[in-house]
């Protein structure tokens, strides 16, 4: 069955979405990510969407769900690499992806994940930013 691969890099999970998503693929991805967070005890999830040429409200919702589910499992999520045309369209559509952190590229995303996990650890496990 077709699935989106999830790579483990250090303490993070890296997901690169390259294909046009349909429902089943999206549902499988959500399951896979949550499974992997628990299995690998990952503290951060990075979703690279630089190859996506459009994000509709369905995919937007999926990104939001992954972020919320990950947070419950104590992992930070950052979405990286959204293309300008996609971002402009999403804004027009009325989707602001509240609760999803974003970064320009994989390097910047990595920086963001590291610093927010450090901050979290410094503040103690019970404080959430």
């Amino acid at each position: 069955m077709e699935r989106i691969p999830i790579l483990k890099m250090g303490g993070f999970l890296l997901i690169t979405i390259q294909v046009d998503m349909h429902d089943r693929l999206a549902m499988t991805l959500q399951n896979d990510v949550t499974d992997m967070i628990v299995k690998t005890r990952a503290r951060g999830v990075m979703i690279d969407i630089s190859m996506l040429d459009m994000v509709d409200s369905f995919i937007g919702r999926m990104l939001g769900s992954i972020a919320s589910m990950s947070r419950i499992l104590d992992a930070e999520t950052v979405v990286v690499g959204m293309q300008p045309a996609v971002a402009i369209t999403l804004v027009e559509l009325g989707l602001s992806l509240t609760g999803v952190r974003t970064a320009l590229n994989v390097d910047k995303g990595m920086e963001l994940l590291r610093s927010s996990i450090e901050r979290k650890e410094a503040n103690g496990a019970f404080v959430r930013d």
Binding site: I88, E92, T102, A103, L104, G109
Partner: peptide
């Protein structure tokens, strides 16, 4: 405003 929002979605 839309530009600011779009930039934010891109991570800037």
């Amino acid at each position: 405003l839309k530009t600011v929002a779009a930039a934010r979605l891109m991570g800037a």
